[in-house]
Write a protein that binds this DNA or RNA. Sequence first.
RNA 1: GAGCCCAUAGCUCAAUUGGCAGAGCACCGGACUCUUAAUCCGUAGGUUGUAGGUUCGAUUCCUACUGGGCUCACCA
Length: 494
Amino acid sequence: MYTFDPKWLEKLDAMRASGQEPYPSAVGLVPTHTSAELHTACEGSLDPKTVIPGEVAVAGRVMFRNVMGKAMFLRLQDRAGFIQVYARREEVGEAAFSVLKGIDIGDFVWAHGTLMRTKTGELSVQAKDGKFAAKNLSPFPDRFHTLSDVELRSRQRYVDLFMNPESQATFRTRSAVVRYIRDFFHARDFIEVETPMMQTIPGGATARPFITHHNALDIDLYMRVAPELFLKRLIVGGMERVFEVNRNFRNEGLSHKHNPEFTMLEFYWAWATYKELMDLTETLLSGVCVQVTGGHQIKFNDMDIDFTTPFRRADMDVLISEATGLSLHELRDSARMTAFWVEKNGSTDALPHTFGRWWEKLFEHYVEPNLVNPTFVTGFPAEISPLARRSDGDPDRTDRFELYVARWELANAFTELNDPVDQAERFAAQVKAKDAGDAEAMHFDADYIRALAYGMPPTAGEGIGIDRLVMLLTGRTSIREVILFPTHRPEAHG
RNA sequence: GAGCCCAUAGCUCAAUUGGCAGAGCACCGGACUCUUAAUCCGUAGGUUGUAGGUUCGAUUCCUACUGGGCUCACCA
């Protein structure tokens, strides 16, 4: 239930009683220019009427209002910025002026007239007429303080967007990032595709899925945790270069960098390896950084990050060795790593038993917190890479990299495993882990094995977290600041 | 899922050791023809997140609950 404030409803009655429709159609209320178009056109001109001599019409939400007896100023906000309207009673007439005096902060208003500058030089529309376009019925937030309540800002994004221009700017940047990415791949002969959000077998990542139900088929479906296995089916089908920018759903905790639904770019490139992907990723990320920030250097939290190419490339075990002092030889010895961990951290709880799991743990603990500038980390153990191709010459490792920026994983990529027999064995191992209680382990996807059995050309594929990329490029430190409507608990009522 | 912190008017914030719950903006009424955080005068706005407890007396202290923030875990 939403309860209207009777005080504000009375305003509607009063307007209608005086012949004013509070919610007219747009007919006759269409602006001729946006605020920014007028400011741009008249920049540097002392007398804007010489630039645009005729009448202009502007429209927007009233964000500032100053009524002074027989004259008034309104500042209208439209999608491009602000424009001031100056209305004098002697010019708009008694009737129209008294209508305009009834304007509240937050109302939508249309006005037309000629351009002028005030004595302080502000470009303004000197009104010949003005009309209500849509009435606001809510008391307005304090406009001298930014709306600071993070919860309110994301629950009521509509308020955040009109109160905090920088919030709107964040989402415009997000749009620019996605657009850049689409153009980037189209220019390289990739095609954009859409694969199932609802899957009978979830796959492509180790994560807990959401489950939903299809009534007509009477089957449970899983919201996808990744599009990977479908995109690779397209490679089998001969499409060779595909990408998808879309939502994934993971049934996991919320945090400043996790939302249950989040946006991933995934792309697959036949006849390429993870090494070409590193080159492509550098070009893409440094390019989008320049596109939306104007340069290669950004600041994020207290970190200075440089997207100048080339990015650093380093093997996982080399980085772990540097950070821990353990030799590469010792990093193949689980017992040695266990002793090291117990010595440094004391804890003996739930320690790994294999070198692959140990690398994962040591990397997260000792290396990841120091990876501020973009760094391609390579040489991942096969054990923790169930969909990646084993490296020639080292079957315990894979042709895989993760890109780290600002102490986060931003991208994950590898030369794809296209050996159907190996893939079937790795699925079987995942199923075994699942049966042993690992809720995030993968299912056995027999149709995917069937697809691979037809032959998949050598292919490399990658996923990039769009939300995190946008966070970096906008300096927003919470994922809720870059997702328009992030997931919330329902509001308490009563 | 765990720990710590927060919740006062529509918004931003006060309230002295536990002693009459306040201000600015928004809203309402009035004055004002270049304001831009307009100014000036006046009114109204509250079960202090919810439910209990301690106390002569609770916004203040205690408990539980609800919502949120930060950190951790899981993960991208």
